[in-house]
Computed example of a mutant assay.
Amino acid sequence: MGCDGGTIPKRHELVKGPKKVEKVDKDAELVAQWNYCTLSQEILRRPIVACELGRLYNKDAVIEFLLDKSSEKTLGKAASHIKSIKNVTELKLSDNPAWEGDKGSTKGDKHDDLQRARFICPVVGLEMNGRHRFCFLRCCGCVFSERALKEIKAEVCHTCGAAFQEDDVVVLNGTKEDVEMLKRRMEERRLRAKLGKKAKKSKAAESVSKSDVSEEAPGPSKMKTGKPEETSLDSREKKTSSAPRSAAAPGSSSGKAGRPACGATKRPIADSGESEAYKSLFTTHSSAKRSKEESAHWVTHTSYCF
């Protein structure tokens, strides 16, 4: 079977060796990391967010992922560490003025430059295409190249002026070593947050229990002295109650003779020492109790009546 036409087979045609490992195109890998969402595999569009491990996402894709509560939801490595929207930071990216997008190659007769990127470093001007290391600050979300942070050392952000620490610097699309270091920092940060919440809850419970105990058993200082407002009110009431008593007491120097003191019983008008004309103004006078026959008729005569 074969080899009858003078053909000479070679070794690689007869002996099967080990398969060659397929190598991934570096340019294609960089384009996928820096231009596409890690979760939905769609083109990155604003608002763009980054997780604590330095991966890029579309914010709407992260929100849809968090709202999806179905059992068919698959947790991949790209988003298994994202538990809430607080675990991602919205990035403040600087546009590249030389970026044309898809406008230049609409006809398909122009070469797409993969080195050209949509965003650049606002300090140094390097393009964010994966050839240079970029990082962002967790405190404010500003994105810079690592070269800018090393050359211009400062404790505040170069764009917004927000203060940051070394723990706030997160490398975007870093190596395996960078991802391991960022993962360790993330776990330590979340552990500290949990411990802080537990400490706050315990302090709140202690304060509530202390307030309950103080309400049930007041201290001796409160029993003896009391509040200054309450004592002043009590003294005012005592003064007002003692004033009419002293005025009504016989032989007291205060108060004029013959006048009833405040709070004393009122005497009838008939027993008072006023004149009869003054007493006749009241209904209790004897003149008001006359019958109609005894009362006189008042008639006026004017010139208009004749």
Results as ranks from 00 to 15, higher is better:
Gly2Cys: 06
Gly5His: 12
Thr7Ala: 12
Thr7Leu: 10
Ile8Thr: 14
Pro9Arg: 03
Arg11Lys: 00
Arg11His: 03
Leu14Glu: 10
Lys16Gly: 05
Pro18Phe: 00
Pro18Val: 00
Lys20Cys: 02
Lys23Gln: 13
Lys23Ala: 14
Ala28Ile: 06
Val31Lys: 10
Ala32Met: 02
Trp34Pro: 02
Tyr36Val: 04
Cys37Met: 03
Thr38Leu: 01
Gln41Arg: 11
Glu42Val: 00
Leu44Tyr: 12
Ile48Trp: 12
Leu53Phe: 06
Tyr57Met: 11
Asn58Thr: 07
Lys59Ala: 14
Ala61Met: 07
Val62Thr: 07
Glu64Ser: 15
Lys69Ala: 13
Glu72Val: 03
Leu75Thr: 03
Lys77Asp: 15
Ser80Phe: 01
Ile82Cys: 05
Val88Gly: 05
Thr89Gln: 15
Ser94Ile: 07
Glu100Met: 02
Asp102Ile: 04
Lys103Trp: 03
Thr106Arg: 11
Thr106Val: 07
Lys110Gln: 08
Lys110Phe: 08
His111Gln: 09
His111Ser: 07
Asp113Gly: 03
Leu114Val: 00
Gln115Tyr: 01
Phe119Met: 08
Phe119Val: 04
Glu127Asn: 04
Glu127Arg: 04
Gly130Cys: 10
His132Tyr: 09
Phe134Asn: 07
Phe134Leu: 09
Phe134Val: 10
Phe134Cys: 11
Arg138Glu: 15
Glu146Cys: 05
Ala148Cys: 05
Leu149Asn: 10
Leu149Trp: 11
Glu151Pro: 01
Glu155Thr: 14
Glu155Gln: 14
Cys157Asp: 08
His158Trp: 11
Thr159Gln: 06
Thr159Glu: 06
Gly161Phe: 04
Ala163Pro: 11
Ala163Tyr: 08
Glu166Ser: 09
Val170Leu: 14
Leu172Tyr: 13
Leu172Cys: 14
Gly174Ala: 07
Gly174Phe: 06
Gly174His: 07
Val179Gln: 13
Arg184Pro: 03
Arg189Gln: 14
Arg190Trp: 12
Leu191Glu: 15
Leu191Cys: 12
Arg192Phe: 10
Lys194Trp: 08
Gly196Ala: 15
Gly196Tyr: 13
Gly196Ile: 09
Lys198Met: 07
Lys203Gly: 02
Ala204Leu: 02
Asp212Ala: 14
Ser214Glu: 11
Glu215Val: 13
Glu215Cys: 10
Ala217Cys: 12
Pro218Ile: 11
Gly219His: 05
Gly219Arg: 05
Ser221Ile: 02
Met223Ser: 14
Met223Glu: 14
Lys224Arg: 13
Thr225Ser: 09
Lys227His: 05
Ser235Ala: 15
Ser235Arg: 15
Lys238Gln: 04
Ser242Trp: 03
Arg245Asp: 08
Ser246Gln: 04
Ala248Phe: 00
Ala249Arg: 12
Pro250Gly: 02
Gly251Pro: 03
Gly255Ala: 07
Pro260Cys: 01
Cys262Leu: 11
Ala264Trp: 01
Lys266His: 12
Pro268Tyr: 01
Asp271Cys: 06
Ser272Met: 05
Lys279Cys: 09
Ser280Lys: 09
Phe282Ile: 01
Thr284Arg: 00
His285Asp: 14
Glu293Tyr: 01
Ser295Glu: 09
Ser303Tyr: 00
Tyr304Pro: 00
Cys305Phe: 06
